[in-house]
Amino acid sequence: MKRKQAATTRLDISQEEGPAKIFNNNVDDGVIAFALWQNSCADGESLPASAAVPVSVHTFVPDKLAVLDDHAAGKQVTVEFKEGVPYCKECDDSAECLHVGFAICLEQKHARSILE
C-alpha cells in the first residue's frame, strides 16, 4: 500500500517577522521547527516567546497525541501516535511530514524529562 506524500514545501528560518515559511514538508523541517519553538520558549513556558516560530504546542498527551498550532498554515494540526508511530491527520496520515518531525522531538523531550 502506497502512502500519499505530503505536500512539498520548505522551511525558511531567515524571516525575521511573522511565522517562518515552510518549504519542504518533511521530518527534518519538523526538527528545525521544534528547535525554533524550544529556543523561543521563555523559562520553560509552553507558549512561544517569538512570533517567528512556525509551529508550537497546543496540547500534548504522551504516547497518544500532539495538537500543534501550525502558524504558517494558520490552523491546528493533530498528530496521533499509533503503536509508537506518529501519523499526521492534516497530511493524509503521513508519517513523514513537518508535524510528525515536531511531534517526534516533543515525545523525545518528554521521555528525556522522565529520565532526569
Score class of each variant (00 low, 15 high):
D93T: 10
D12V: 14
Q38H: 15
E83V: 08
T8K: 14
C97R: 01
V61G: 02
F60S: 10
L47H: 04
E107M: 08
I22R: 00
R3L: 15
G74C: 05
E90I: 00
L106V: 02
V27Q: 03
K64Q: 11
F60L: 12
A72V: 04
F34E: 02
N26L: 01
L11D: 02
V85C: 09
C97K: 06
K109T: 11
V79D: 03
Q76G: 04
N26P: 02
E90S: 14
V57T: 14
E90F: 13
A51N: 13
T59H: 09
E45P: 01
K64H: 12
F23N: 14
E80I: 12
P54D: 00
R112P: 00
V77R: 06
I13G: 14
N24E: 09
A35W: 05
P54T: 05
R3H: 12
N26G: 04
A103E: 01
K21G: 03
Q76D: 07
R3A: 14
S14K: 11
T78Y: 07
N25F: 06
V79A: 03
Q108F: 05
H110R: 13
I114R: 08
R10H: 11
P19F: 07
L106G: 03
D92V: 06
K75L: 15
S46R: 13
L47S: 09
S40G: 15
S50P: 02
V57R: 03
V61A: 11
A42P: 02
V61F: 09
L106F: 01
F102I: 07
